[in-house]
Simulated assay, not measured.
Amino acid sequence: MTINKPVVAMMMAMDRNRLIGSEGQMPWHIPGELAYFKSVTMGKPIIMGRKTFESIGKPLPGRTNVVVTRNLDWSAEGVLRAHTLEQALSLAAEADQASPEPELMIIGGAALCADAMPQTQRLYLTTIDHAFDGDTWLDSFHWEDWRVVTEDVRDPATTGGLAVTYWVLEKA
């Protein structure tokens, strides 16, 4: 049996200043964005930091949830715990061996994304052409490191009046 090596992918949304969060939450609500997130991640292992998991509040159904934390005593029902990014990637890969085109999804937060950015091969990036207030940025992302695979510009009438683009990028 041949085991396909999984693609390390990341899924993030950011404003024009690379802002991704405000007090542990997303600083925007965009109609359709959560449905897009679900459609891309469903059936794939998702890897997130503990604070991201706690902001969601529960494991996301239909996906293996892997939470990275330095706290050796932390646990939550319905998730796999990892103490390093490497351990998380290994747990997620084991969970996704049956997939013909395995893809491991890193979904946040900023510190985990910074650690994972060098290993990330594909990025599902939502950009919002607006400046929001917040406290967490995707500083590890640089456009010149990526090439565009697809670009899907949404009509602001369908996205709450915001100019939103869904990108699929691959490492340049």
Rank of each mutant, 00 (worst) to 15 (best):
E144I: 10
E144V: 09
T69E: 02
R70H: 14
A93V: 02
G160Q: 11
M1T: 09
H142D: 11
Y36N: 10
D139N: 14
M12C: 04
L89C: 08
P27W: 04
D139W: 01
V79P: 07
I20C: 02
Y36L: 04
P100N: 02
H83A: 02
G109S: 11
N17L: 05
D129G: 05
V79Q: 07
I106N: 01
T126H: 06
L89R: 10
N4A: 15
S39R: 14
F53R: 05
T158A: 11
V79F: 01
E77R: 00
V68H: 12
L138G: 06
I30S: 01
I46N: 09
S90I: 06
T136Y: 02
M1P: 13
A116R: 02
W143A: 15
M11N: 12
A82E: 09
W146T: 11
L162E: 05
E86Y: 05
S75N: 12
V8C: 08
S99I: 00
E94S: 13
P61A: 14
V164H: 01
A76F: 06
C113G: 10
T2M: 11
N71K: 13
K58D: 03
F37H: 03
Q25W: 01
A111D: 11
P118Q: 05
Q25C: 06
K58W: 01
M12T: 13
T127E: 15
P59L: 08
M48N: 04
M12I: 13
V66H: 03
V153E: 12
M105H: 03
W74Q: 02
E103I: 02
G78F: 08
V153F: 09
T136A: 15
T2G: 05
K51G: 00
L80S: 10
C113E: 06
A172C: 13
R16H: 04
G62E: 06
R154P: 00
P6W: 02
I3A: 12
P118M: 09
R63G: 05
M42W: 07
E33T: 04
M1R: 15
R81L: 10
T41A: 08
A110R: 02
A13Q: 07
Y124F: 15
T127G: 09
E144R: 14
D155W: 07
A114S: 13
H130E: 10
A131W: 03
M26H: 00
E103H: 01
Q119E: 14
S140K: 02
V168K: 11
N65Y: 07
